[in-house]
Design a binder for these strands. Structure first.
Length: 194
DNA sequence: AATAATAACAACCGCTGTGTC
DNA sequence: GGACACAGCGGTTGTTATTAT
């Protein structure tokens, strides 16, 4: 893929970095009216100076109305750990079993929290065995990270506390030019759309 | 109060698989 | 059968927010 630049027909500069509210609205509106699919041409037709790839990612991970963000429940934590123990880093596969969750979110969640927590747990249980056991997260067949994790995931641990403090909700509520809620976006879309 | 360190999240990049011509 | 275009996946990096010193 990407064997040659997608903008071969026209020399449009490609925007990168965080999406603006305007871009989000354009994308939402366009998909609401035309549906998903053929992301490269979608990006062009919608007038977005983004790659199709970028549009797809933004839509799937953030703008889609059925995306649930934050507040990963203990049940979901357990499920993630179980599935990861079973399949390893097959994030999209795991995400399919967590309705509303994206592979990106699960991946980030795993890397930033679960993995770290497992490491800590291992350090406590026996620092010496780390040569083999630190690879536990990768070595899914020989051990069960979930087992480590579950024991350290009891609601009394700081881990759960972190969750609560971390996930105050999808978006901060203080006023900020670039902060808005998905509900806002969708209501705007409804106003703009048909 | 200022600064440094850390955590959490969003987005990009490169690669692979699949479909179409 | 080969070349190309696209979708999707997983790894990685950059940015922002939060916490500790």
């Amino acid at each position: 893929m990407d064997k040659k630049p997608c903008n071969s027909s026209q020399d449009v500069e490609v925007r990168k970095g965080p999406w603006t509210m305007e871009e989000d609205l354009i994308l939402i509106n366009y998909i609401a009216n035309h549906g998903e699919g053929v992301w490269n041409s979608l990006a062009r037709s919608a007038g977005l100076k983004r790659t199709g790839k970028s549009c797809r990612l933004r839509w799937l991970n953030y703008l889609r109305p059925d995306v649930r963000r934050g507040n990963i429940t203990p049940e979901e934590q357990l499920l993630i750990m179980e599935l990861h123990a079973k399949w390893g880093n097959r994030w999209s596969k795991i995400a399919k079993h967590l309705p509303g969750r994206t592979d990106n979110e699960i991946k980030n969640y795993w890397r930033t929290r679960i993995q770290k927590h497992i490491k800590q747990a291992e350090n406590f249980t026996g620092g010496g065995q780390s040569s083999d056991q630190t690879s536990c997260t990768n070595n899914v067949s020989s051990c069960h990270p979930a087992d480590h994790a579950v024991e350290s995931y009891s609601p009394n641990t700081s881990f759960n506390g972190n969750l609560e403090t971390t996930f105050q909700g999808p978006f901060p509520t203080e006023s900020n030019d670039n902060i808005w809620s998905m509900e806002d976006l969708w209501s705007m879309q409804l106003l703009n759309g048909d």
